[in-house]
């Protein structure tokens, strides 16, 4: 019993932190910038395959390749913003369709260039093997991922709450017209915020790669894992995202270690449905970042 409790506690933290890392960028883009980023899943592909491209095909050392892949994500997001978001910002159905189409196109092209049998693998393991925590044991790399997620969360909070750029982003989120009237350079700030918010997806993908799938069709699944806590928590509210991530982490850990791992996903989906039916605007119904 104690053993199961250890597993539940440890893996709630581990899984929850992982989902938090996936969801952070999405919650900022969708909640703060109010762009429902249906192309978010493509960022994971750009990160993983970008790193592989620079490292394996071009011959850049791994750390350099990761940095270049993150720059590639930034460039991709910027182009996406200029070409699709700016064009369709007022036409939401077109914006959704456009972003979704781009995601599918990236997925198909990646699958064509790097089919699964190529064996794309990112050797980004920092802690190999498993680490004992109480009665439980955890793959070391999961601890790395969790730490990275929490650091990103902290950086986001500091950026959004303590910096001028963050203040401007929050101002735009609250009232775009008023922000514009106050002299905010709307377009530039929006682009900058979207680019910054897309980086965590890349960092998490690269860090989790040694213990998670890396294949051309992983984007949709990671996107779902990003969207669940972001929406459940209340879009744009990092505190809500944090709580929701650990709720989903707890469901997965509890089902996985105490009931039946087969039901992990199904139960979490049903719980999210029920919570959304009761609290239709997420757990934290706030219009603030924290």
């Amino acid at each position: 019993m104690l053993e199961a409790l250890d597993y539940i506690v440890v893996y709630t933290l581990i899984f929850g932190s992982f989902y938090l890392g996936l969801a952070l960028g999405f919650t900022v883009i969708t909640g703060v910038l109010r762009i429902f980023h249906l192309g978010y899943g493509a960022l994971f592909l750009v990160a993983a395959y970008g790193t592989w491209l620079f490292c394996n095909d071009i011959g850049v050392e791994l750390p350099g390749a990761i940095v270049l892949a993150l720059i590639l994500i930034a460039a991709f997001t910027f182009v996406l913003y200029r070409v699709v978001v700016v064009k369709f910002i007022e036409v939401e159905d077109y914006l959704l369709a456009g972003l979704f189409a781009i995601f599918v196109i990236i997925q198909e092209i990646v699958s064509y260039v790097y089919p699964e049998t190529v064996g794309v693998y990112l050797p980004t393991t920092i802690i190999s093997g498993s680490v004992p925590v109480g009665h439980a044991s955890v793959p070391g790399q999961y601890i790395v991922v969790s730490t990275v997620s929490l650091v990103i969360m902290l950086v986001f909070l500091v950026f959004l709450l303590k910096t001028k750029a963050g203040l401007i982003i929050r101002a735009i989120s609250q009232n775009t017209t008023a922000a514009k009237l106050c002299g905010v350079k709307f377009d530039r700030t929006y682009a900058l915020a979207m680019v910054i918010a897309s980086i965590p997806a890349g960092i998490i993908m690269v860090t989790i790669a040694p213990i998670w799938p890396v294949n051309p069709f992983i984007g949709m699944e990671l996107f779902s894992f990003a969207m669940l806590p972001a929406v459940l928590g209340g879009l744009g509210n990092l505190r809500g995202t944090l709580i929701a991530s650990y709720i989903i982490g707890f469901i997965h850990a509890f089902c996985g270690f105490a009931i039946n791992p087969r039901l992990m996903l199904l139960v979490s989906l049903v719980v999210v449905l029920v919570i959304l039916a009761v609290r239709p605007r997420g757990i934290v119904e706030a219009e603030t970042v924290w």
């Binding site: 893996y11 996985g256 270690f257």
Partner: peptide
């Protein structure tokens, strides 16, 4: 994708 509960 999450086999850790099974493995443990």
């Amino acid at each position: 994708k999450n086999f850790l509960p099974y493995l443990e």
